[in-house]
Nucleic acid binder design. Structure first.
Lengths: 340, 340
DNA sequence: CCTGTCCTTCAAAGCGCTTTGGATAATTCT
DNA sequence: AGAATTATCCAAAGCGCTTTGAAGGACAGG
């Protein structure tokens, strides 16, 4: 069933039917109702591709999804997506996901833009420098980043968590508790969120006249397994750390396991603070020793990004708009005074 | 840059340019090269919406994503997606994801089909009866299920794991070890995968003249938290179970925590077998006591589904095709003889 | 030199929708 | 009553692509 068939059946023109369906005022209430009813009965749904072609709008936002055999699914990704979806479903938007191998992301974005399938583009996992951001900046399609590049040029729209501040605060708490030897369990080095977290920690240490030993810094994907291995390595050092900052609860899971395996008590022999993205399947308060965390909901970020992206399409101001969310420091049992 | 502009610039007709680009034989090699080069230089990318409108094909597969404020991100979902993406990226396919609230999924599928945006549809989280499956069956769009409805009418294409067999086997192992009192930590009751797992366990017990106590069955979302709570409840029973079957490693995570909190030793006081979807962030071999599991990779299933779906569009046989994957039983340290 | 073939290219129609610029009929104003 | 609005509705163009049917040119054979 298409527009033509529907209008033939009603004895009306396509114009009128289209207008009736889309709420234009130039049709009488009587015919509008007639049209609506017929559309309902016949199950008529407009063809989006045609709509898109005619209007240039399609109520869809595009995102490229990194895909490679060695990259597994990321719970952070789906947590974020569920927030985005929550907002999208309210406005009848959908997503177009273009999978791309890591070295082909720029092209994937180009294709996405040119495809005419999407009204706006979302981008995450910002690196520095980031060619994808440059591309988006020079294109005319609306977009929004989750995260930002390094440096102070803030002429592009983003939403980011204050990662530097979060780890700075966390480190300060540990310093106040008397800790001197710190370790960092971080995400992949190339991501700016990881860079900023490291900087936050380093600055806090510098303020206290301390430095971060390169041997006590680990960068990797954020899996349970990676956390375990890295923590085992840390503990094997001649002078082992008494304070650990951890970029995610999944990493913390492994780290905690390594700690108890070594016979150490969390919150006593060793203190740990993890960043908590509020993953629905893994809560820091449910760890055997509840985790002190810097918290910022990934899902909420997704929802907010959806809101802004969809809002900007509705004709809201086009100004580059930035948003920086502070993470909450939540003290639980995994932190305590430095052992003497 | 569109086709018309490109062809004007080349002094050729749109027809010729289109044919050159799409590899038709009716153009001379000389002009084909000229066209290809120009397309490259100008960065011409065909508009997918127009292509779709003209051909009816769009190299895209659709999926609806359940979204509700109370549903968080699901690591299983993203693990599966990464498999699907792996295959899609090979064939330059993309996904169209329509988020829908749980009570609106049928409509979301209808919209997806009518939208003209997708060539095929993928569906997961099968329930029974499942109106979405009925809809797909009666529509003419190619589709594929991950999972299947209950009953023996197998006239629709699916790929499923033999959940019943997996839990049957797992239960048998525990029975051989002398266990008599079983508990089940399952996924949501409405999903057929959960139903089948329960049946597998019940049948194995029945063969041994045992029954499953309703007090020792728990259905919920598969989160760490849910696993913890349920296991605590199980352990509080007057006669506590000595064997536990667990529908996922995330549930097992919480369950194991409850067990150690109660001062019990896994693999000794209590045995546990979990189903392992091979989530990249949570490996059963890395649990403090490595977990005995029934294993079946979700990511592999995603890749296989992508392969079949994309293949069927390429004109392969349209026969309803079924596939049932056996899960591997992998014995590790979380299972041991029943305590006497 | 003319005709029949093949090779290459093109004009135009069509995919299903929106939207511009009228046209017609109903209503109001003078 | 006739003129000026206003309320409804419509024909046709256009979005960017593919594809059908046909035309023009080159080349061989008669």
């Amino acid at each position: 069933m298409n527009l033509k068939q529907l209008s033939d059946r009603l004895g009306l023109s396509q114009t009128t039917v289209s207008r009736a369906l889309n709420g234009y005022p130039e049709v009488s209430e009587a015919t509008r109702e007639r049209v609506l009813k017929a559309a309902q009965q016949t199950g008529y749904k407009p063809n989006k591709a045609a709509q898109r072609l005619a209007t240039g709008k399609a109520k869809s936002i595009g995102l490229v999804m990194q895909s490679a055999p060695e990259i597994g699914g990321d719970p952070h990704f789906s947590e974020f997506l569920s927030g985005l979806a929550e907002e999208a479903v309210k406005h009848d938007f959908h997503f177009v996901m273009a999978p791309a191998s890591p070295d082909d992301e720029v092209n994937a974005i180009k294709r996405l833009i040119a495809s005419g399938y999407v009204d706006a583009i979302f981008l995450a996992h910002v690196v520095d420098p980031d060619p994808r951001v440059d591309l988006l900046r020079s294109s005319s399609i609306p977009y929004l980043l989750h995260g930002r590049v390094m440096g102070d040029t803030h002429d592009y729209p983003y939403l980011d968590v204050d990662n530097e501040g979060a780890f700075h605060t966390a480190a300060k708490l540990l310093l106040q508790l008397g800790h001197k030897r710190f370790a960092l369990l971080n995400g992949m080095e190339r991501f700016t969120f990881a860079m900023r977290r490291k900087i936050g920690l380093e600055n806090a240490l510098a303020d206290a006249g301390l430095t971060l030993s390169p041997d006590l810094v680990h960068h990797s994907v954020m899996s349970d397994q990676a956390g375990f291995r890295a923590m085992e390595r840390f503990l094997a050092q001649p002078e082992r750390p008494t304070a650990v900052l951890c970029a995610s609860t999944t990493l913390a899971l492994g780290a905690v396991r390594a700690i108890s395996k070594a016979g150490l008590k969390l919150g006593k022999d060793i203190s740990l603070i993890a960043h908590d993205d509020v993953l629905s399947t893994l809560r820091p308060e449910n760890f055997s020793v509840p985790l002190t965390t810097t918290r910022s909901s990934l899902r909420a970020a997704g929802a907010r990004i959806g809101q802004r992206l969809i809002g900007s399409l509705g004709g809201a101001s086009e100004l580059p708009q930035q948003e920086l969310w502070e993470a909450e420091l939540i003290v639980r049992a995994s932190t305590g005074p430095a052992p003497t």
